[in-house]
């Protein structure tokens, strides 16, 4: 059987700098894959590539038997891929409930969204989502007023609203307290199975709590792959993190 998401020999070049260099990565359906690696390893670029933000100069990406090469971002999103950005990207001038409403993107066509009353149809979903991410009492406030942690939660809630089959998370716990991070881990474990997740994360505690398979990237390539114990024992990984205080402090 083909893997759910398959990156084969992809290369991304920024003016000659190879952010991804002949990368191969397979993810199977329902998996929660953690992607780690030292700074500049190409983790974020890998996510950018999958969701269409950057284009590869070589190689191919296949998701759920659809070839994503050269598709526009919204087509990739419609194929079932959602993305959370490293810097939380929400609509700051819109209220929290409107943010969630925009994210309920089951009918993305412009003409189907011109019908009156469509907006109200999402109300129930919005209430449920707000409860899930703990923003019920913030629904009517503009997203600009939220704290950094709340903004992270809002964007996570928006991804749940989008209900994408494959969710790409770039450092979802950055700026969160230990307690918030635990809540996030719980949520991700609940999403696992129904959704396929790829999570880029620096916090090894978080990675150990959620990940079954960890992929380590270094210099735009896949360096190692396996369980947390295997990764920590891997000499090549130790070498890549050398001088950075070891993998646990990455």
């Amino acid at each position: 059987m083909n893997p759910y998401l398959q990156l084969s020999n992809v290369t991304v070049s920024f003016n000659g700098f190879l952010a991804l260099n002949d990368l191969n990565l397979d993810v199977s359906k329902g998996e929660l894959r953690c992607l780690i690696g030292p700074n500049g390893a190409g983790k974020t670029t890998a996510l950018d590539l999958i969701c269409g933000k950057v284009k590869q100069s070589a190689g191919s990406i296949v998701f759920n038997d659809t070839v994503l090469d050269g598709l526009e971002e919204h087509r990739i999103a419609r194929a079932g891929i959602g993305r959370k950005f490293q810097v939380p990207s929400v609509f700051r001038e819109l209220t929290v409930s409107d943010n969630l409403r925009v994210a309920c993107a089951q009918h993305p066509g412009v003409f189907s969204n011109l019908r009156p009353g469509h907006r109200q149809a999402d109300d129930e979903a919005v209430e449920r989502l707000a409860e899930l991410v703990g923003l019920t009492d913030q629904l009517k406030r503009p997203a600009a007023f939220l704290s950094h942690g709340q903004t992270q939660w809002l964007e996570i809630g928006m991804l749940v609203a989008q209900n994408a089959a494959l969710i790409l998370m770039d450092e979802p716990t950055a700026g969160m307290t230990a307690q918030e991070t635990r809540k996030t881990a719980d949520l991700f474990l609940r999403l696992k199975g129904r959704h396929t997740l790829i999570v880029v994360e620096h916090d090894m505690g978080f990675v150990k709590a959620i990940g079954d398979v960890i992929s380590v990237m270094h210099l735009g390539q896949l360096l190692a792959q396996g369980s947390a114990c295997e990764i920590e024992a891997n000499p090549a990984v130790r070498k890549a993190y050398l001088g950075r205080g070891g993998i646990t402090n990455a």
Partner: peptide, 27 residues
């Protein structure tokens, strides 16, 4: 007041973000 009206405001706020929800921003 329609959802399309909401989405154009989201586009005004953060154009590229809207694309990753599957909306055809240009349309």
């Amino acid at each position: 007041r329609t959802k399309a009206g909401l989405i154009i405001q989201a586009i005004r706020d953060h154009e590229s973000r809207v694309r990753y929800f599957g909306y055809d921003v240009g349309a």
